[in-house]
């Protein structure tokens, strides 16, 4: 080991640990670019949980039964919880929740574009759980083995709950598909709207994803965008068939040679358009977050002021 320490630069030692699948912990040395990439990725993930509460929150007050209302509220509450673990994980890299939120509110930090699409019917609660959470799980399960310890551990908790979310989404779809014709139409209509945007959740094509190679090398990422997108299609097409629904892509076809489904080209113009802030709900999602934060300022200030007064009184009493 001594020769190792002498012969290898900090970068080389760091990469050797990564290659040996040894977790990086907050106090370990790490390249600045690794730290920055992680802060960007984890905070983006935390923001997605936070903003992701809004499209489903839109249906909590209209859920069609007490049971559904209760499950949906619990699910959205889980997302708030995921946001908390992830902000905490990012804080171990030397940033603060206030800073991350400021970056979200200014538009500097991104969140998942999928939440810039509106939820228009009850079947959207099915599609968000089934497809959106399904895509999120594919993205996130490999992150349980990501190289940065606090992130990996946060993701283990997140993934457990996400699989429950996905099941409840599928169950909503199944109930609709086994219900009246009007319910099945509702399910198909929602699938038509959500299918392509969920394929976009895996990010740009590998050939246009400049960060992928470095992130794979650091084992922050374990699969490429296109690999995950293919996995998703292979998983979801049979599920849609099981439900009796049609995926809105005429190019979807089983390819015996590849042992995978062929599928059509994502509308990348739409993808970049929404990423750049021009989706239907970009403006209102961000506004809702900014408004909650600004309108909550006096509450946070009151809590701090009261805690300070109490501390001062206790100091006098002692």
């Amino acid at each position: 080991m001594e020769t190792l320490a002498q012969d290898l630069s900090p970068e080389e030692q760091f990469q050797a640990r990564i290659d040996a699948d040894i977790r990086i912990e907050p106090k370990d040395w790490m390249p600045e670019a690794y730290r920055k990439t992680l802060i960007r990725q984890i905070s983006q993930h935390a923001h997605s949980e936070l903003v992701g509460m809004l499209p489903e929150g839109n249906w909590i007050t209209r859920a069609p039964s007490l049971k559904r209302k209760s499950i949906l509220l619990a699910k959205v509450q889980d997302e708030a919880g995921h946001g908390l673990y992830l902000y905490s994980a990012a804080e171990t890299l030397g940033t603060s929740r206030d800073q991350m939120l400021a970056d979200l509110h200014s538009g500097k930090a991104k969140y998942s574009s999928i939440f810039n699409y509106p939820t228009l019917s009850w079947a959207d609660m099915g599609c968000v759980g089934w497809l959106v959470d399904g895509a999120a799980i594919l993205n996130q399960v490999p992150l349980c083995r990501t190289s940065y310890g606090p992130y990996a551990r946060a993701m283990v908790r997140v993934c457990k709950e996400e699989s429950f979310h996905q099941r409840q989404g599928f169950e909503i779809m199944q109930t609709l598909c086994e219900g009246a014709p009007v319910q099945k139409e509702m399910a198909q209509e929602a699938l038509n709207r959500w299918w392509w945007p969920t394929l976009m959740m895996f990010g740009p094509k590998d050939s246009e994803s400049p960060n992928t190679a470095q992130s794979m090398n650091w084992r922050i990422k374990r699969f490429t965008n296109d690999e995950l997108r293919q996995k998703f299609v292979d998983m979801m097409v049979p599920q849609a068939e099981f439900l009796g629904l049609t995926v809105p892509d005429p190019a979807v076809k089983w390819n015996e040679a590849r042992q995978a489904y062929d599928f059509g080209e994502v509308n990348w113009e739409e993808f970049w358009n929404v990423v750049k802030g021009n989706g239907l709900c970009n403006h209102e999602r961000l506004q809702a977050r900014v408004q909650a934060h600004e309108e909550g300022a006096w509450v946070r200030e009151a809590a701090l002021a009261h805690a300070a007064k109490r501390k001062a009184r206790e100091a006098v009493a002692v």
Binding site: L50, M53, G57, T61, S70, L73, V76, A288, V299, R300
Partner: peptide
């Protein structure tokens, strides 16, 4: 439940949803 996603701070968003779930 109308507060969900709009609370003054994340921890209180969770608390409001918790109470709502209990009452539900």
């Amino acid at each position: 439940s109308e507060w969900c996603g709009h609370g003054p701070v994340l921890e209180q968003d969770l608390a409001l949803a918790n109470i709502s779930l209990d009452l539900l």
